[in-house]
Simulated scan of single mutants.
Amino acid sequence: MSATGNYAQVNGLNMYYETHGEGRPLILIHGGLMSGEAFGATITALAEKRQVILPDLQGHGRTGDIDRPIDPDLMCDDIAALIDHLGLDRPDLIGYSLGGAVALRTAIKYPEKVGKLVSASANIRRDATYPDMLVQQSQVNAAAAEFMKDTPMYELYARVAPRPEDFPQLLQKLGDLMAKDFDLTEEVRGLQVPTLVMAADADMQPPSHYVEVFKLLDGGLRDGGWMGEGRPKGGHALAIVPGTTHYNLADSPLFTIISLGFLDEPAA
């Protein structure tokens, strides 16, 4: 898999990104404690049809941290700045987990910069997450770094991060983020970008939460009709991916097939 790696100066970040393939631009945004390369074979599959731009988010992968919280409300500004830096004309966005939250907020805040959106495994309310998962998330902090030294996430971080010693700081910032309450119901209701809401059938939140998000987008409220006339007015869609979890959704071949099927569908 050949790739071109570069850095862009955006909002005080020295943001690393790679470019794979050719075609209509697509920005693919990774999850927390990951980096762009963690998408693995999914990058290759998407790059067969698209130019895939793969940023490493603040404090992740080859992008060093800066003195601000890790927060999707701020990180969406980085994606918008990267779009401007690269001179892209309304690229599509695919975001997974933390990346899904960043992509969703980018589409909410900068609809004029985005073509279509795939928001995968990105809940819109903190309280939609299973209670036992919220307990686990509350244990993520700087002190947990020592216990994660044998995990693939730490191995990746230690191999590519500009300052591997920042790992405890990354965990602390992610823990702070996960402890923060949020509710994007009204923002999602006003979303102007055609959006595919995607989740695993065994995700961190129940499938019913993602159905709820789809309903906010005028979906699941009526029969779609023989000619699709009853589908959501904004071109939105829903996919619950069978046989997957939060942790392997983006590795599934269905992730690519469903995403490209939605993104490449002509506008109604």
Rank of each mutant, 00 (worst) to 15 (best):
F147N: 15
K49F: 07
A103C: 04
A103R: 00
R90W: 07
G87F: 08
P69F: 04
T106P: 01
G95H: 04
A101F: 07
Y96F: 14
D127M: 11
A103Y: 00
L88P: 05
I27Q: 04
Q51L: 03
L57Y: 04
L93Q: 01
L93N: 03
V140I: 15
M34E: 14
V102Q: 03
N11W: 02
P55S: 06
M34Q: 14
L26Q: 04
A122R: 02
T106E: 02
R24T: 12
D73K: 01
F39Q: 09
A45N: 10
D84P: 01
T129R: 13
I43E: 11
D150G: 06
M153S: 15
I124E: 10
Y16N: 13
A128V: 06
L74V: 05
D150H: 15
L13H: 05
Q51D: 08
G87H: 11
L33N: 12
H85P: 03
G36T: 09
V118K: 04
G100T: 06
E22P: 01
R24G: 08
G59T: 08
A47T: 11
E22T: 07
K116E: 05
V10G: 02
A101L: 13
D78N: 05
A144H: 13
I29Q: 00
E22C: 06
L54C: 10
G100F: 07
A80L: 00
